[in-house]
Nucleic acid binder design. Structure first.
Lengths: 164, 164
DNA sequence: GGCTTTATTGCAAATGATTTGCATTAAGGA
DNA sequence: TCCTTAATGCAAATCATTTGCAATAAAGCC
């Protein structure tokens, strides 16, 4: 049984209805290999159905989030907007690395996080229900480029006063 | 030399000016033991200077952020707003636990995070410049309350239809 | 101390992602 | 096929945060 059908069943089980718009959004999500914003999902889906509405995209995404089918998360260094993660349903225990230069996002498992959780509980008590870990840095290929060419010298004054 | 004076020196060194408003905001931050929002800082500071402006608070906070004097971070499960962290200048390497019930935030060190970073680099290459780790769960005292009394049964219908 | 430069403020208006109210449409069980 | 009500489209509202601009006031200089 494919992903869209699985989600449809979860939906029906909670009194929801499968619509053309929801199916389209689900199929769009299924094809994502990245972490798109609501607007990006809207644009991609709209290529197949131009009268799709952005509100519907938001409502569908929030509903999928409640079902645990997609995750959402914000990254530092860009304007505050949710990015959605269709991979979370297939692989719930992953975290994110984000490249500061090319903005690529790498998903990685972090089994050692359990050690950190145990340390925390041992010291402070309580329970931990979820954890969010994000690394920021340079991905392998951006690092290689920087190492190969050296950092670019950026001097706005020199650019502005440069003779044409 | 106290904190406000230290920050003033950093400020002057970059061509900035120390004003009554900035001093007030700094002193307000120095007294924080929590992670207030811009609005909360504004309300606290305004008790001493009622004509302080919220824009000034925002501008001052962003400037302190650039200087590395305060940190900012958003937490899940509340509306999207920045919370500011004056403790980051004294103790840069801390992470956050947030209690889902009482909303308390606990700061904790996580030296083991270096293992996770090393693991990541070994597998994917690149470099890691910063990391954000947040735990969500129940703090010790909320956990004890839940264990002592059991979870509350919340049934809106029963409340609405309850005879008075 | 007064003068000058320009960083900073207060105010109001703009921004931009996200949510919401409501009339209309359509899913899916009877 | 009919009926109930969940879902959509549209426009307007939200709400934290930012920004333009005229007025104010640091702080370097005489």
């Amino acid at each position: 049984m494919d992903w869209v059908t699985q989600v449809t069943e979860r939906l029906r089980a909670t009194g929801g209805r499968m619509t053309a718009q929801r199916r389209l959004i689900l199929e769009t999500l299924a094809q994502c290999t990245d972490h798109p914003t609501a607007e990006e999902i809207y644009q991609r889906a709209r290529q197949r159905a131009p009268d799709l509405n952005l509100s519907t995209v938001y409502r569908t995404l929030r509903w999928l989030e409640e079902l645990g089918v997609v995750g959402s998360q914000r990254f530092e260094g860009e304007r505050p907007q949710d990015r959605f993660d269709p991979a979370i349903s297939a692989n719930p225990d992953h975290h994110h690395f984000r490249c500061r230069l090319c903005n690529a996002i790498i998903e990685f498992p972090a089994p050692l996080l359990d050690l950190l959780k145990r340390d925390f509980i041992a010291q402070y008590g309580g329970t931990i229900e979820s954890a969010s870990l994000t690394f920021y840095g340079l991905c392998q290929s951006c690092l290689q480029k920087v190492e190969a060419y050296g950092p670019l010298s950026f001097n706005p004054d020199a650019i502005l006063n440069h003779p044409r």
